[in-house]
C-alpha cells in the first residue's frame, strides 16, 4: 500500500504545472525515502528530475517500492479540481491499475475523490554524475523567468556568459539583439532578492530559450533559482521545494543540453 498526504496540496499542483508541458508521460518511483520522477522531453534535449522527501509529507506510508506510471497531463487535469488550500492524499494499492486522489477542503466537510489510470511505461533511467561545476549562480526565480521570456522575443537561443562577478544573458535575431547583465549583490537583507555568483573559470555557452521558458514554469515553487554551468555539459536549473514553514521538501532539477555554434 502506498499513501501520501500533503496538507499543502498546492505544492503538488505547482509541481505538475512545472513539468506537464515538458513531459507527457512519466513514472513516479515511490519508496520509503519519498517520491521521485525522472523523464526526458520527447525530443531528448532536456531532462527533469523531481524529488519529494517522505518526511516532507504529513503522512507517508510505502510498504514496498512502487512505480506509478501516468499521463502527466491527465494528472494535472485532476489536480486542477483541487483547491489551493486543499489537503491532497494520494493512494495506490499494491498491484493496482489506478491511483486515487482525495481532496479535502480546509474547515469544510467536503471531500472529493478522483482516480487516474496507471500505465506501464518503458522508462529509460539516466545516471547523472555528481560533478562540480565551473559556475554556480543563485538569483531570484522571477528575474530568471523575466529574462528568458524577454529574450525569447529577440531570438531562439540565449548565450550565457560568466566572468568575474557578473553573468550575462544575450540573444540575437532578425530584429536585433538584447543583453541582460546581472551583478552579484552585496547585501543579504532580503536573501530571496539576492544574486550570488561563484566562478571557478569563465564560461560561455548557448541554450534554447524554448526549454528555459518551460523550466521557468517552476517559478511559483521557489523565490530563488540556481544555475550550474560547466564547459560542454548540460546546464542545471534547480528550484528547491520548501513548504510554508520553510522546511526542505525536495527539488525540481532541469538539465538542458547545450547548443553548438552555428
Amino acid at each position: 500500500m502506498f499513501e501520501a498526504k500533503l496538507i499543502q496540496g498546492a505544492i503538488l499542483k505547482k509541481i505538475l504545472d512545472a513539468i506537464k508541458d515538458l513531459v507527457n508521460e512519466a513514472s513516479w518511483d515511490c519508496s520509503s525515502q519519498g517520491m521521485s520522477l525522472q523523464a526526458m522531453d520527447t525530443s531528448h534535449v532536456s531532462l527533469v528530475a523531481v524529488q519529494m522527501k517522505a518526511d516532507g509529507f504529513d503522512k507517508y506510508r510505502c510498504d514496498r517500492s512502487v512505480t506509478l506510471g501516468m499521463n502527466l497531463s491527465s494528472l494535472s487535469k485532476i489536480l486542477k479540481c483541487a483547491g489551493n488550500d486543499d489537503t491532497i492524499t494520494l493512494k495506490a494499492p499494491d498491484d493496482g491499475d489506478k491511483i486515487t486522489l482525495v481532496f479535502e477542503a480546509k474547515n469544510e466537510s467536503e471531500t472529493s475523490e478522483y482516480e487516474v489510470k496507471l500505465m506501464n511505461l518503458d522508462s529509460e533511467y539516466l545516471g547523472i554524475p555528481d560533478t562540480p561545476y565551473s559556475v554556480n549562480v543563485k538569483m531570484p526565480s522571477h528575474k530568471f523567468q523575466r529574462i528568458c521570456r524577454d529574450l525569447q522575443q529577440i531570438g531562439d537561443a540565449v548565450t550565457i556568459s560568466c566572468a568575474k562577478d557578473s553573468i550575462r544573458f544575450a540573444a540575437k535575431g532578425d530584429l536585433g539583439s538584447g543583453t541582460v547583465n546581472l551583478c552579484q549583490t552585496a547585501s543579504a537583507d532580503k536573501p530571496e532578492d539576492s544574486v550570488s555568483i561563484s566562478m571557478q573559470e569563465p564560461i560561455i555557452q548557448s541554450f534554447a530559450l524554448k526549454y528555459l521558458n518551460h523550466f521557468a514554469k517552476a517559478t511559483p515553487l521557489s523565490p530563488q533559482v540556481s544555475l550550474s554551468l560547466s564547459p560542454d555539459v548540460p546546464l542545471v536549473v534547480e528550484y528547491s521545494i520548501t513548504d510554508d514553514d520553510g522546511s526542505d521538501f525536495g527539488y525540481i532539477r532541469y538539465y538542458l543540453a547545450p547548443k553548438i555554434d552555428e
Binding site: 525530443s43 555539459v233 538539465y255 552555428e262
Partner: peptide, 14 residues
C-alpha cells in the same frame, strides 16, 4: 535543429 545537442549524449543509461 542540427546545432542542438541531445541530453542522452551526456548521461549514461542505467
Amino acid at each position: 535543429d542540427k546545432y542542438q545537442l541531445k541530453i542522452d549524449q551526456f548521461f549514461k543509461k542505467m
